[in-house]
Design a protein around this nucleic acid. Structure first.
Lengths: 152, 152
DNA sequence: AATGATTATTAGCCGAAGCTAACTTTTTAC
DNA sequence: GTAAAAAGTTAGCTTCGGCTAATAATCATT
């Protein structure tokens, strides 16, 4: 069998040269995926502290829809990564870094959500889609979303 | 410490009642995540077959930006799940089901990409963001994206 | 047809994120 | 202040999706 380039020139269909760009995209998406869970937790912890004065594992578990041991393990990773602090059998606190990340995530979430609503989506679907999309929008896209949502 | 409801009523800020909706969103996102890799592979396999006449693991690896053993393992899962067929040391074929999924993914990808471009994003960023976003848009959102992209 | 290069597979490692079961600690209620 | 309930932790299992190193098969070139 011939090489990639040979075959490409044999067939050379539409394609500007998306192949290499695509690789970068895949790699970027995999990177984004690695931080998704941490971002969701940190954002939720900030919310809980704001709403209820503290972030307890049991509430995190309920809101995330996972079991308590899963939360415990994830909190261990967040602590290791310097995003939270905690003492045994006590609730969780955000570090400076954690707070900064939470703020960033909250803002991003808000923008995506407002954008989807502005586009005409119903609130439930908008919430669900925003949760998935927010981790995959670049700064540029976010800026465009923001402009669109704000325009009347 | 008091219960969730007690604390909520003590603080009861903005909030219509997004807490339960949020849980559903998180669960939905986790479900979507489980099929992301499979969808990317199937879509790419279809592309390779179209462009080059066959889908070889080495080309899949190059396009995905992963190593050959990673591809091998993933192809094993795809075969187990009935999306592809393959013979040892040969290239990969899509099953009926795999072809259907690939078509669906390609269409979704196209719509998201066209939407982002229509919004004014540069092609590289659009490609990268589309790759991440496409797995997290509901049918409703997709319909809105499509309408928006088509409007002049 | 033999050999060297390319490609594919296998084995075995790792970390993330989920789970259940069992146990400890803390909180609540009496 | 003690007993029951709730919350938190630990241990141990699973799957997924990466990786490297080593091996096996195929292909291409002479």
């Amino acid at each position: 069998m011939s090489t990639d380039e040979n075959l490409a020139s044999e067939h050379q269909e539409s394609e500007a040269r998306p192949a290499e760009a695509r690789v970068e995209a895949f790699i970027g998406v995999r990177e984004a995926r690695r931080s998704e869970v941490a971002e969701d937790y940190v954002e939720l912890i900030a919310e809980l502290i704001h709403e209820q004065g503290e972030a307890r594992p049991v509430d995190i578990a309920a809101r995330m829809g996972v079991t308590a041991p899963t939360v415990a393990k994830t909190l261990g990773r967040l602590a290791r990564d310097g995003l939270i602090t905690r003492a045994k059998y006590r609730s969780v606190f955000l570090t400076e870094e954690g707070r900064a990340l939470a703020k960033e995530c909250r803002e991003r979430h808000e923008i995506v959500l407002r954008f989807l609503l502005r586009l005409g989506l119903d609130p439930e679907t908008a919430e669900r889609d925003a949760e998935g999309i927010e981790h995959h929008v670049s700064q540029r896209t976010l800026a465009l979303f923001s402009d669109f949502a704000d325009r009347n």
